[in-house]
């Protein structure tokens, strides 16, 4: 039940209310509502650059060209493959770690949590620069270690510069960077399982695995759905890390959709704003679909509980 907590008065102070809402409404209109509408509008025109004049309406031409463009299809495929590699790894590894760190007798919890959180605190621009050094095939420690371990197939490879290894490598760096975030999600979820439940089960003689299977898992499923969706939406927006690690290269091997948009709008010698806007609109729409799926999944899970 929603709590009724609004002030009862004879007259609602509309002046104050709108004054208090004004900053949010103005900024929200400028930086969210207008850009959404404008992206769709630009995508239906032939605008090339920010200084273009005589912009004409061209209907769905940009969209038709987009879906015939092998580079755009490539960026969709790159985003998809990145998701398939990075999301399960981050999801499972962070859950296992959270279970360990949530264990009552685990030593050094805060210390470990801080260690795993360090990369989350660090901006992608810096992670990118540092990993370019660490993965440098001549001086970087990773290739030196691969060489010592006698993994010759990789030891002399530039992991970020090779067409086949670039995407898996960026996925590993991404999991490394964001694991601490998922860890906090999972720990918060695990801590919402009441202690009494554990105690009761233990008195009944349940062992750890039984405890986990029959008590923790059912309670975690709604959280797991949310964490999975958050992880997927993070992975789709991998722009910053890609831009600094590989800039979409080598030969578009790591060009995700957002990097594709950025390249056509801001990096190309002859920018194609309308075209990039069409890609952005498709991307935003696909993203909203994921959110809708989340809402449906959430509702389904809640119905299942009752």
């Amino acid at each position: 039940m929603k709590r009724i907590n609004t002030l009862k008065r004879h007259r609602t102070p509309y002046g104050w209310i709108y004054l208090f809402l004004a900053p949010t409404l103005i900024l929200f209109s400028m930086y969210t509502l207008y850009p959404i509408g404008a992206t769709v509008w630009y995508s239906l025109t032939n605008m090339r650059s920010f200084t273009s004049r005589n912009i004409a309406f061209v209907g769905l031409a940009n969209y038709r060209a987009l879906f015939a463009d092998s580079q755009f299809l490539n960026s969709l495929s790159v985003t998809g493959r990145f998701l398939l590699m990075a999301v399960p790894a981050r999801f499972v590894l962070s859950l296992l770690l959270a279970l360990l760190l949530n264990w009552k007798r685990c030593m050094g919890k805060t210390f470990f949590r801080t260690m795993f959180f360090l990369p989350v605190l660090t901006t992608s621009a810096i992670i990118g620069v540092v990993f370019i050094m660490i993965l440098d095939p001549t001086m970087g420690p990773v290739n030196i270690i691969l060489n010592r371990l006698n993994i010759q197939s990789l030891a002399s490879v530039s992991l970020l510069g090779n067409f086949n290894t670039a995407l898996p490598t960026t996925a590993i760096v991404w999991v490394w960077k964001w694991l601490g975030n998922s860890l906090i999600y999972w720990i918060a979820s695990l801590q919402s399982v009441p202690d009494e439940l554990y105690e009761a089960a233990r008195i009944d003689g349940a062992n750890s695995w039984q405890l986990f299977k029959s008590i923790v898992v059912p309670l975690l499923i709604p959280f797991a759905v949310i964490i999975l969706i958050l992880t997927v939406s993070d992975a789709i927006r991998v722009f910053n890390l890609m831009l600094t690690l590989t800039n979409g290269g080598p030969f578009f091997a790591t060009e995700t959709v957002e990097v594709f948009i950025y390249r056509h709008a801001f990096q190309a010698s002859s920018p194609r704003m309308a075209y990039a806007s069409a890609a952005a609109a498709v991307f935003g729409f696909a993203f909203m679909m994921i959110v809708v799926i989340q809402r449906i999944a959430n509702a389904a899970v809640k119905r299942g509980e009752q």
Binding site: I17, L25, I36, T39, V257, A265, A280, F283
Partner: peptide, 30 residues
Amino acid sequence: AMYDFRGKKLIEAMLIVTFFIPTGTMLIPT
């Protein structure tokens, strides 16, 4: 939180719906 007023539902709905839209989508018009 404190008041019921015209447009409140609409404002809240718009905020929630646009919550997840990636910045990349809005970069060019911005």
